[in-house]
Design a protein around this nucleic acid. Sequence first.
RNA 1: GGCGCAUUCGUCUAGUGGCCAAGGACAUCGCCCUCUCAAGGCGAAGAUCGCGGGUUCGAAUCCCGCAUGCGCCGCCA
Length: 529
Amino acid sequence: MVTSDVRVRYAPSPTGTPHVGNIRTALFNWLFARHHAGKFIVRIEDTDQERRVEGAEEAILDSLRWLGLDWDEGPDTADGPFAPYVQSQRRQLYQDAAERLIESDDAYRCYCSSARLDALRERQTKRKAPTGYDRKCRNLSQEERAEVEASGAAPVVRFKTPLTGKTTFEDAIRGLVTWENRLIDDFVLLKSDGFPTYHLANIVDDHEMRISHVFRADEWLASTPRHVLLYAAFGWDPPIFAHMPLILGADRSKLSKRHGAVALLDYSEQGFLPDAMLNFLALLGWSLDDKTTVMSREDLVNGFTLDRVVASPAIFDVEKLSWINGVYIRELPTDQFAEAALPFLTSGLPGDVPRPLDWSYTREVCELVQDRARTLHEITELADFFYTGGVEFPLALVWVGMGDKQLKRRVDEGADLSDEPVPEDAPVVTGWLEAAERRLIELDREWTAERVEEALRSLVPEIDSSTRKLFGALRVALTGRTAAPPLFETMEVLDRAICLERIGRALDRLREGHQRQRIDSAKATPTSD
RNA sequence: GGCGCAUUCGUCUAGUGGCCAAGGACAUCGCCCUCUCAAGGCGAAGAUCGCGGGUUCGAAUCCCGCAUGCGCCGCCA
């Protein structure tokens, strides 16, 4: 691959932990850079001292690292060609730039108080007039200027936006976008605390850092004309702009905290795989062709082109993410899957399960649940019965396991079966399980799935049961649930002693339950009246 | 209120004037496989391409208007 002049950047503000929309923008930048063998730069835009959040910068970098988006220059590359990559450390640059603009008469100092500005905005809103600065300080005379300066008010620097004409630029995704200059007010470049606003710092840095393409979220489209005007005032060539469609919540509004998990790292905690997330995020606003969904990192890099990025916003669909995640989970080599699962099991299993978890046992368990998990987080509930001392279940669940339609429907409807009377045919079922127990006791060496299956299968015709019923009953007795990994593999992993113990326990409860019912019905039988 | 951007199955999307009475994927439903659940296979249902005008022999695709949604209009980014 040849290196190109492509230099793109991800420029977040450290105001919190980045959400998926934000990271999707980073991803498209990264994909573009890698596709063109260019550079991907991370620049921290911390010019707002008040919104600064402790630890946010690390959260940003961690998010990028989790997804595997590596950067060529960034806050941690002190020796980068354009270091530092943190705006608060580059203040002089912006101040000099602002000064230049004042000298060339493209900017001016404004002494208006926030109170005045607030009142102004309020009046404009009330009149339903467009809001914006009224340019009071734009043409101050020498005397007026001297007067306000003497009062000690700390000024801001504002851009002297052209009063007439139009600003046009080509957005790589949306085409030609035109703005009337008279609609753009004299925006602030340098705040009274000496820090630059986004508009100034962004332009200065993008120019200084030789950024070739600016890919950012759609919400920036409306301020791009200002940026174009600034480039012109400085006499610089603007980069190519491309505004990415927004990512929306299920209710079509901009993704925010009330939509639940929105931070990228929340998904890491929920057991989503970085590669799956990468794949999914890439498909939000971009497509390779008319049919490809699952793509490797390499496919993504090779196939990513700007002309296939759409302009309309997309809803974040966790269902599809989960599906893709399942695909990636299934593709993992078992060892890798087990390794990924281990921390989730360790933290998710009940406290009385001894830690650390046995590795080789966990690996066997993971082999059985791998195909069934859509997230790593789910593994705990899929596999807990492999670890807990015993299993608990309402006795009637055995019948659900055997395929009792009525009971099954009630369970599906959320019914609690704990007080459900034991069905009439309990003695028959008890007999089956007793036969199974005897058969398994005879199987005193070589406890493998094959041998267990052979033993149990041959039993079925002998006791006049069916595979569905016998195996279903055993499944509930052994796992406490009606849906679980294949029975015989499960039994092999669980091992003989545990299986026998659980079957024995189920049998005890079955006899006891049936017994009690007979007593109850005897009691209930009216002897008089 | 002004300005801007967007508008194809529930969702993500394909589509750049005829190959589209619109293709794929997720979700949904059905069947097969089967010891259950998954996975897998097969199939169904689901979009008068926001609406209305135009241009054209022909429009989801081009133009205009409207509607709706979203974004911006801060000494926030």
